[in-house]
């Protein structure tokens, strides 16, 4: 049974890719509310597959995935949609929608909220300010730099108060000021009590000191 404190729980998950290569072999993971877990793994170790399993885009061969205490079942689209609204995704399979403006990207999760347009507009304005995107609100997301795209996704991932953030390679390809800016936002989100699962290839990332750290090795967390 899933723990009541767990925002995300994977129990004995076994998963193979379409070529039959075993990616996870009895993977267990428990991410409690308000905590951050960082999983390290080289390219091809299954970080994206893990995200796909969590959001129900793929099914494990055996084992179970629980989000907020509910079992994730791929193919049950309506139920999955409800669960996905509680997840903020950054990087990996989550990308900004390049043909939409920055403010429309950030507003996307609010489409499914029963809130007044006035309240939604305020949230979007606040997110633009919080993530330093005020001047880029009317630009198309496709025209942004990689660092700005990460910031847009972070703003989008938090604008609807999503309780769980899935963050895939947040600092990959970033350097200098923008790298520090993104790392600082992540620290701030962790301190703000967000539940975060961060997937990264680099073991040198230490931007959230209090996070639990695991390494993906032979289909399990070590």
């Amino acid at each position: 049974m899933p723990g009541s404190k767990a925002a995300l729980e994977l129990v004995e998950v076994v998963y193979a890719d379409i070529h039959g290569r075993k990616i996870f072999d009895g993977l267990n993971l428990n991410l409690n509310y308000g905590t951050t877990t960082i999983i390290f793994g080289p390219t091809g170790s299954g970080k994206t597959s893990l995200t796909e399993l969590i959001i129900g885009a793929e099914s494990p061969e055996s084992g179970q995935v629980f989000l907020f205490g509910q079992k994730v079942k791929a193919g049950r689209l309506v139920r999955l949609a409800g669960l996905r609204r509680k997840i903020g995704g950054v990087g990996g399979i989550f990308t900004p929608i390049s043909n939409l403006k920055v403010k429309d990207n950030i507003a996307a999760p609010l489409l499914f909220r029963r809130e007044s347009n006035f309240y939604k507009r305020n949230k979007i304005e606040k997110a633009l300010l919080d993530f330093g995107l005020k001047s880029r609100g009317d630009d198309l997301a496709g025209n942004l730099s990689q660092g700005e795209k990460i910031l847009v996704m972070l703003a989008r991932a938090t604008v609807a108060d999503q309780p769980l953030l899935l963050i895939d390679e947040p600092l990959a390809g970033l350097d200098g000021k923008i790298r520090e800016k993104v790392a600082e936002r992540l620290r701030r989100l962790a301190l703000g009590g967000h539940s975060m699962l961060i997937l990264t290839a680099s073991e040198n990332e230490s931007f959230i000191p209090e996070a639990r750290r695991f390494r993906l090795e032979e289909g399990k967390l070590a």
């Binding site: 959001i55 885009a57 689209l77 309506v78 949609a81 409800g82 669960l83 996905r84 609204r85 509680k86 997840i87 995704g89 399979i93 989550f94 990308t95 900004p96 929608i97 390049s98 043909n99 939409l100 996307a108 999760p109 489409l111 499914f112 989008r156």
Partner: peptide, 13 residues
């Protein structure tokens, strides 16, 4: 791209 991302963000069918 828009459809896939909206699906990931919780848009129903």
């Amino acid at each position: 791209e828009e459809l896939v991302q909206l699906q990931l963000l919780g848009a129903g069918p």
